[in-house]
């Protein structure tokens, strides 16, 4: 028996919207830790890791140890679009061996209750071990600003060079029509803490990434006012959006490497 009641149902809607362009189908894992997912895009260039901790749910019951539920994200998205933004979402399943999952949507006033049953799928997914890393630079900035930069640069070029130095974090691209550079300096003198740009640098780092993926990651912007970008010269970048009181969604993107 699995029963997860999420009062802020819109979080789940936003999470799936941020994943569905990169991930076709995936196993959601339910354990005592929480509701989680690890999946790669079909080219294995990006890896997505989601955690919604069990204590963030109003009710969290998962009796079967680790219980993977294979879902096609496009179908899940269709169903979650039927939930109102203020609805409470309850996910129910009978346990291993059962091939359906039920989503119940309750309006805040409880005057409307809907349930949608979705077929589960068997998915062969390989879990990757993500090593604990020492990053050369960790930058926290407003998520809307990061989204804006990725969108702006993708009208000029296909790749972005992200460099962190004492000066700040620099995003550069070049294309047929010309070049673009955007520098964000550390800025902690802001009225609201979420507007700050904070740069922790151990050593300068510069890496090249495909902008198409970065733009996809920014679909998670509605989940958090801030984004954290962690860079090391020999590792995938980690773009993390914290999910209030519940966990995170992390996007790992493999760099482009000079031949």
């Amino acid at each position: 028996m699995l029963e997860l009641r999420l009062v802020q149902g819109s979080l789940l809607k936003k999470v799936i919207e941020s994943l569905k362009d990169l991930v076709n189908d995936a196993n959601f894992d339910c354990s005592s830790t929480g509701f989680s997912l690890q999946a790669m895009d079909s080219s294995h260039v990006a890896l997505m890791s989601l955690l919604l901790r069990s204590d963030g749910f109003e009710h969290y019951r998962c009796d079967h140890g680790n219980f993977p539920m294979g879902m096609k994200l496009e179908n899940l998205s269709k169903i979650l679009k039927c939930a109102g933004n203020d609805d409470i979402i309850t996910i129910k399943a009978d346990g291993p061996g059962n091939d359906t999952v039920t989503f119940m949507f309750e309006s805040p006033s409880q005057e409307k209750i809907a349930d949608y049953e979705m077929k589960l799928m068997d998915i062969d997914s390989e879990h990757l071990g993500i090593p604990e890393a020492e990053f050369h630079a960790i930058v926290r900035m407003p998520s809307s600003e990061f989204a804006r930069i990725c969108k702006d640069l993708s009208s000029i070029g296909d790749t972005v060079v992200i460099s962190v130095t004492k000066e700040g974090i620099k995003f550069s691209t070049k294309g047929d029509i010309g070049t673009a550079n955007v520098v964000c300096r550390q800025n902690t003198t802001v009225d609201k803490p979420e507007d700050a740009t904070i740069i922790e640098m151990q050593q300068p780092v510069s890496l090249t990434f495909a902008l198409r993926y970065m733009n996809s990651f920014t679909k998670a912007t509605p989940l958090s006012n801030t984004v954290t970008i962690s860079l090391s010269s020999d590792l995938p970048v980690v773009v993390e959006y914290k999910i209030a009181e519940m966990g995170y969604i992390r996007f790992y993107l493999a760099p482009k490497i000079e031949e």
């Binding site: 390989e126 493999a254 000079e258």
Partner: peptide, 14 residues
């Protein structure tokens, strides 16, 4: 030119 690497180059299967 630069070549796109993959996640599996960096992280191994469990």
């Amino acid at each position: 030119g630069s070549k796109q690497s993959t996640i599996t180059k960096f992280f191994s299967k469990l």
